[in-house]
Design a binder for these strands. Structure first.
Lengths: 220, 220
DNA sequence: GTATGCGTTTGTGTATACATTAACGCACGA
DNA sequence: TCGTGCGTTAATGTATACACAAACGCATAC
């Protein structure tokens, strides 16, 4: 149970602090500083930082500390382009896999939750269910590497979403798209699943990038 | 000029040994062992291993050493699926970017070199030029993250290619495909660039996977 | 006021020490 | 012969020590 190394603890603690905004994008932090804050020596902190760096969450620069990576509008455009392609592939593969209704239960639940959240005007719950839908979709695509790449990219999106979630229009079309994708997967229609999800993501991309550019979050 | 840290040295030395087959896939190596071989302490070796692990080249398992990741036929299928999508996107973006003939010189050269290598029956030179073509194609797509993901995936392909290069049929169709993609990019035809490259990669994938499965390189 | 150079400070990169804990072997019992 | 349990061994995870080099401040010169 408590078989968790300090490195693992450091990774999740740092991730949490980054996502919570406690370590704001662009800020620098010395290894010693973080080590003290986490109650461990520099060694595991360094190793954790190395892993987070590989995922693009931080950058280690000699003598300037560990910098929490900023996410610009350009970055977001890059990330969404990748997500668009890889998730759409996953959707197509999921459709080809001929899953049973039972296998798709998690997707169905996520869709229902999104509808409910939208009706209740609970954007935070909506975002959580949306995440769940996309995560499950990728899992059904059955490509471990793809899942990993997507999850790294989605981490970045999550960071940006913290600032954009309440600025954007109600995601009504989004729910409709998800339903179409779900049905296409259920009946084994790979092309529709792929193309619908592709358009869905591309629309999200354009909306988000416009939003970020308008609000000049270039270096946030 | 010696401005190279031991970690950097360890990373490139290990990469080289892995690609050269000196550290065969599936083999285990203790940190101490590698440290001694590289003439440094365990610390930089550990950090290097951590980075290579993030790229999927090794796996660190407590008490069992650093394992050089095997590449199975399934892995190759996963990897090619990702490459197919991302490179095709890059091709489309490159076409949209309206590059001049001069900008595309590197692509043209790579194509010429591949023709020459094919005529001379020099498969190794062909593979090198092929790599060059794909790398430049992705670079022209102008997505830094995509480039990074693709280069990690291509590293894995390179490892498998060492064993498959001389088993597969002459890549004649391949050269023809590249030429079509090049021309599509030159005239700004994103759809043709995308679709042609997509089919090109998918064909390569099917051929390679069949080859690997046939020769039962499941755990190599 | 601005620029240049030197001394100091301080963070990092690396080596090393050490405790912990998993793997291995061996003995013992069934 | 095979399985089980314990003791030993040894590899890792983490802490710590230390040298080097870069950043900063201050003084001096223009």
């Amino acid at each position: 149970m408590g078989a968790m190394s300090n490195v693992e603890r450091a990774v999740s603690a740092l991730r949490q602090m980054i996502f919570a905004g406690e370590l704001p994008p662009g800020s620098d932090h010395l290894e010693t500083e973080l080590a003290e804050k986490l109650g461990m020596s520099r060694t595991p902190v360094r190793e954790a930082a190395l892993m987070l760096q590989a995922q693009g969450l931080v950058e280690m620069r000699p003598r300037r500390g560990i910098r929490i990576s900023p996410v610009s509008a350009t970055d977001m455009a890059e990330i969404y382009d990748i997500l668009t392609e890889l998730e759409s592939l996953a959707a197509a593969r999921a459709a080809e896999a001929q899953y049973s209704k039972a296998d798709l239960a998690t997707l169905a639940t996520a869709i229902r939750d999104m509808d409910a959240a939208l009706a209740a005007d609970d954007l935070r719950a909506w975002a959580e269910a949306d995440d769940r839908f996309h995560r499950e979709l990728v899992r059904l695509g059955r490509n471990a590497r793809l899942s990993m790449v997507v999850s790294v990219m989605r981490d970045q999106v999550r960071r940006a979403r913290a600032t954009t979630l309440f600025m954007r229009p109600k995601p009504k079309q989004s729910n409709e798209d998800h339903r179409v994708v779900y049905q296409a997967i259920a009946r084994g229609d790979a092309k529709t699943a792929h193309d619908t999800h592709h358009a869905h993501r591309q629309a999200a991309r354009d909306m988000l990038v416009a939003l970020l550019e308008k609000h000049q979050f270039h270096g946030l």
